[in-house]
Amino acid sequence: MSEKTENLVKVTIDGKEILAPGKLSTIQALWHAGYPRVKSVGCLEGVCGSCRIMVRRAGSTDVTMELGCQTLIEEGMEVSFLVFPTPSHHTYELGEIRNSWEVQAHFSRIFPEADHCRNCHGCTVSCPKGIQVERGVELAVKGRFREAGELFVECVMCNFCMTACPEFIAPNHVGIFARRVTAYFHIRPSNLINRLEKLRRGELQIRDQ
């Protein structure tokens, strides 16, 4: 089972032909071949969304959006790393939403484009985590924020969906908004509140000397 017995595979990464063991990720393959790679590298565990790549596999015309640390190289694969795009143009403060009755109104104001979704599926197709992004946007537009947010549990904010959206909806930010308002307005754990109250009353002192 040692690496020595494994076959090397040939891939093209950012125009460079590379020969490397097939068990390596695209980033590891670049490093293995001696090429520098500083930008578009992050956690190397698939949760930071930095290493965005476009991939075309041998014999296919399809281009897929993937994460470079999660994609293992294959014979004949072509890979190009993407530069990180500009941030979303939407801005909001949770504090400006006075109560949970007003969330949907604020949502329409903050994300006016969400209602214009033309169901092109670009966001869902481009998601490297397999999230039902378009469905999430649809639920958020209907005010079903808790449900919408649940779909984005695995979202790493790689912004592929943002790049793919012709209506500039910023679907990932819609997803995070849906998750944030759910916590902000609806998470009220009695065990936490009770503990905070005890601390406020000065019970539970600590010996710090």
């Binding site: 949770l94 759910t182 998470i187 936490l192 905070l196």
Partner: peptide, 25 residues
């Protein structure tokens, strides 16, 4: 001593935690 208030602060930023069926952490 900060611990419980840190959790509250995070919820106020919009962070979710796993809860039981009564909504306790």
């Amino acid at each position: 001593a900060d611990g419980p208030d840190v959790i509250r602060w995070l919820i106020q930023q919009g962070m979710q935690f796993d809860l039981d069926k009564y909504g306790d952490i």
